[in-house]
Computed example of a mutant assay.
Amino acid sequence: MASGLDVQRLLIFREIARAGSIASAARSLGWTQPAVSQHLRHLERQAGTPLVLRRPRGVQLTEAGRTLLRHAEAIATRLRLATDELDALVRLRAGSVRLAAFPSAGATIVPAAMGLLAGRHPGLDVRLREAEPPQALGLLAAGEVDLAVTFAHPTSAPHPRAGFPSGPEPVEVGASDLVRVVVGADPLVLVLPRAHPYAQPADVPLPLNALAGEKWVGGCDRCTANLLALCADAGFVPDIRHSSDDYVLTQALIARGLAVGLLPRLALDASRDPGIAVRPVAGLGHRILYVSHHRDADRVPAVRGAIQALLDTMAPTLDHTPT
């Protein structure tokens, strides 16, 4: 009774059937004739029946041999297709990569990186999900995405105001098999109503404590914590009247004179209200932008290609990082 047929021996048997003799199959395979005969005998033992009849001028397939040959041909075809598909994946002619990114990155740098990746490797299927950093890392840990684009504020980043780490580093979210790589920097700026007395000159840094008496708009929990820490460094506690992680709403509140606030440059690149003014502030620093992935996932060609596209898109921000 046939059980556990060996795939290599099936392919050798296929070559015997195609060549018409054991000797011809051995020459085609580059093997010795005794080695090919031995594999055939082992396959016949596994099959439980003769597969060929030996004739003076070659071999003749038995009924069992003809039946098995059909399956051997199908296996050879599937293996060839598998080889072709793997080659396409390795050469980035095919494959997929799933990204999760926070909103302002999802509206700016990620589409640019996706466009760059599509131009380099048009066969790749790239998919994007919008998610704040904690949710993006959760999706990554659960295997629902391949890459998570996240950020850390200057007051919470492991390397605040002191340059950037190089190479992969552990992600501090309790998932030991996740690592992250720095892909860019996103400067923080002060956003004011256009008619505010401190709105000009736009190119001169303003001390943060000059806004100590203002009403402020905060952001998400992490953004608000960063605002509180920066203001504490400047010697005051901000009067936070509003909170929103929607950068469009935040700008709308500021444009109507209801508050001032801090926003990352990417949020302004994504959408800018005409009623606001922007000024640099000494000491605000920048958000560090990361791409996180499972350890060794960057060995997968599609993932590695996406990481490189993000690095190439964000490289100018690393070269011109504000202090």
Rank of each mutant, 00 (worst) to 15 (best):
C220E: 09
C223I: 02
A270Q: 03
L227W: 02
D239H: 13
L228F: 10
G261F: 00
D245W: 07
D233E: 15
S271K: 12
C220S: 13
D245F: 09
R265K: 11
C223H: 05
I240V: 15
L249C: 06
C220N: 12
E214D: 13
P264C: 14
A270T: 10
A267E: 07
V260I: 13
A277D: 06
I276F: 01
D269H: 11
G219R: 01
H242A: 13
T224C: 06
L227E: 00
D269N: 12
L230N: 01
V260H: 01
D246V: 11
S244H: 06
P274T: 10
C223W: 03
G257K: 04
T250E: 08
E214G: 10
A252H: 06
V278R: 01
P238I: 07
S271Y: 15
L262K: 03
L266D: 03
A270R: 05
I254L: 03
G235K: 05
V217E: 03
S244L: 08
A255S: 11
P274E: 09
L268G: 05
E214C: 11
R241A: 15
L228D: 11
H242Q: 10
L258R: 12
A232N: 10
A277S: 12
D239P: 03
L258G: 11
T250I: 15
A277W: 03
